[in-house]
C-alpha cells in the first residue's frame, strides 16, 4: 500500500513536468498562448530551456567589436587611441588548445547579442511619437544597464592589457557586423568584399581600475 501510494504521488509531478515541458517548448500558437503562463511558472527558473541550437536560421554575419580608449599623457593632455578590433583575436583563442578550448568567445557572443537587441529596440523607439521617445529611451537604457556595466569592466580590462603603460581615462566600444559571403558567391574570384556595417556604439565609459586580467 505504501509503495502504491508513494509511486502514485511521485507520478503527479512527473506528469505535470511532461505537460509543462511540452507546452514550454512548443512553437507560438493561440493554443499555447492560453496555457503558456502556467507552463512558464512551473518551468522557470530551474527548468528554463531553449533548444533552438542554430535553428531556424544560424547567423549569417560575423560581429566585430572595436575598442577605443582615452589616455592621459604625462603632459596632462588626453588623447584618443585609434580603434582596435578585439573580437577576432578572442574568437580565435579556442584554437590555442583544441582539446579543451577556452570559453572566452561566449563573452563576445553575449555582448553581440545584447548589442543587436539594443539596436533593434532603439530603432523601434525612433519610430515612436516624439513625446514618448525620451521615456522609452530611458527605460531601454535602464533595462540594459547591467550589460553596459559588464562591457565597461570588460573593455577596461582589455584596454589595460593593450596599453599597460598608459593612464587610461575612458573606454568606448563600437559594435559592427560583416555579412558572411553568400553561399552562391563562395567561389567567386576575387572574393567579394562584404561591407562592414555599424550596429551600436557605447558612450565614453569611465575606466574601471582593478578588474582581473
Amino acid at each position: 500500500m505504501r509503495v502504491r501510494l508513494g509511486s502514485l504521488l511521485a507520478l503527479v509531478p512527473v506528469v505535470l513536468y511532461t505537460a509543462a515541458c511540452l507546452v514550454y517548448n512548443a512553437p507560438a500558437s493561440p493554443a499555447r498562448n492560453r496555457v503558456d503562463s502556467t507552463a512558464v511558472a512551473f518551468m522557470e527558473p530551474y527548468f528554463w530551456q531553449d533548444w533552438q541550437l542554430f535553428g531556424p536560421t544560424p547567423g549569417d554575419s560575423n560581429s566585430l567589436v572595436y575598442m577605443e580608449a582615452q589616455v592621459r599623457l604625462p603632459s596632462g593632455q588626453v588623447v584618443q587611441t585609434s580603434p582596435v578590433e578585439i573580437e577576432g583575436a578572442i574568437d580565435r583563442a579556442p584554437r590555442g588548445f583544441r582539446v579543451n578550448p577556452t570559453k572566452l568567445p561566449g563573452i563576445m557572443l553575449a555582448f553581440d547579442e545584447g548589442a543587436q537587441h539594443y539596436d533593434q529596440a532603439a530603432t523601434k523607439i525612433k519610430k515612436l511619437p516624439a513625446a514618448q521617445r525620451a521615456q522609452a529611451q530611458t527605460d531601454l537604457d535602464q533595462a540594459y544597464a547591467n550589460d553596459f556595466l559588464e562591457m565597461q569592466r570588460f573593455m577596461s580590462a582589455r584596454a589595460e592589457s593593450l596599453f599597460p603603460q598608459d593612464r587610461i581615462v575612458a573606454v568606448r566600444a563600437t559594435f559592427k557586423t560583416q555579412p558572411i559571403i553568400p553561399f552562391s558567391q563562395r567561389y567567386e574570384s576575387p572574393a567579394p568584399k562584404e561591407p562592414i556595417e555599424p550596429l551600436m556604439q557605447t558612450s565614453w565609459l569611465p575606466y574601471v581600475a582593478g578588474v582581473a586580467q
Binding site: 512553437p27 533552438q52 541550437l53 542554430f54 535553428g55 531556424p56 536560421t57 544560424p58 549569417d60
Partner: peptide, 12 residues
C-alpha cells in the same frame, strides 16, 4: 525541438 526549429528554417 532542435529538429523542428531547423526544419522550419530556409537555410536548413
Amino acid at each position: 525541438t532542435a529538429g523542428y526549429w531547423k526544419i522550419t528554417g530556409t537555410v536548413w
